[in-house]
């Protein structure tokens, strides 16, 4: 037992070392290209310059503040999407008439790039937080309605039949059988919708500059205006990192637990 644990640990260390070596190699190539191409620092900064920008931005608190503001907007806008989108999708799958009425509308709005909402929202809400939240919600809501609706339609009909013979009706049937049966697929739809929300937020933050604290998108935008390419690249790294953390930590774990329980993948022991 002890031996196995140790063995597993050393495996983790090994793969971690591999990853660090890989990242280091990429950074070396980056530095090498910079030196070889004799690029201006203004146009193409070195990894050390980007790292030093990130370090200073962390130290004076701008970065932490920006991350906080951005995450808050993301969570708020996305929560509104989830609270409206999932019930709406379920209602659409239940009532044919509702689906016939708004189904096409949802599909249409889903194809609309979220940046297209910006002119409209600027006139409606001005340069405010609400304008940004509106873009985030519009960017993620429609895909969530569409995916929830199709998730519910894909559940095996035998679950519903069995539940009905056992006396489940109406709301009870929906809460105890239809929703949990569709849950793994709904989560997949939520993941996609989260990615849409994240993209929408970044476009909204670049286009809509609000009064108050700086956000990640704004820092990126100002980086361009001030010709500070180290800031632009640094913010791109931060945006990638947040996206990865949400995907790998949040959704990957939820999906793993669901799939293990629902039996889509066999548990390892």
């Amino acid at each position: 037992m002890r031996y196995r644990l140790l063995f597993q640990d050393s495996n983790i260390v090994k793969s971690l070392l591999k990853k660090i070596a890989y990242i280091f190699a990429v950074l070396c190539i980056w530095q090498f290209v910079h030196v070889l191409g004799r690029y201006f620092d203004l146009i193409f900064p070195t990894p050390i310059q980007v790292a030093s920008f990130l370090w200073h931005a962390c130290a004076d608190g701008t970065l932490i503040g920006a991350i906080w503001i951005t995450i808050k907007r993301l969570v708020l806008g996305y929560s509104v999407s989830v609270l409206i989108g999932i019930p709406m999708g379920m209602l659409c799958s239940r009532f044919y008439i509702l689906n016939a009425c708004i189904g096409k509308l949802v599909l249409g709005l889903q194809t609309l790039p979220s940046i297209c909402w910006v002119p409209l929202t600027l006139l409606w809400f001005g340069q405010t937080d609400r304008a940004i939240l509106f873009v985030v919600t519009m960017g993620s809501l429609w895909s969530l309605i569409a995916s929830t609706e199709s998730s519910v339609r894909q559940i095996p009909s035998v679950y519903v039949k069995a539940a009905r013979t056992m006396g489940a009706r109406g709301v009870n049937l929906w809460l105890t059988v239809i929703f949990p049966a569709a849950l793994p697929l709904i989560i997949t739809g939520m993941k996609q919708s989260w990615a849409f929300a994240w993209r929408s937020l970044m476009s909204a933050e670049i286009y809509i500059s609000t009064i108050g604290g700086l956000s990640i998108g704004q820092l990126l935008h100002y980086g361009r205006e001030m010709q500070a390419m180290d800031q632009v690249m640094g913010m791109i790294f931060i945006i990638i990192a947040i996206g990865l953390i949400a995907e790998k930590v949040l959704f990957a774990n939820v999906e793993r637990i669901l799939h293990k329980r629902w039996g889509f993948i066999k548990s390892s022991n």
Binding site: A162, T176, A181, L183
Partner: peptide
Amino acid sequence: RMMMFQEAALFPWYNVLSNVVYGLRF
């Protein structure tokens, strides 16, 4: 009048006991 199907039609989000309890839930 209860029914059994070709597939067991058990609910994977419950454990075995809760599946049987579901028949009594209502």
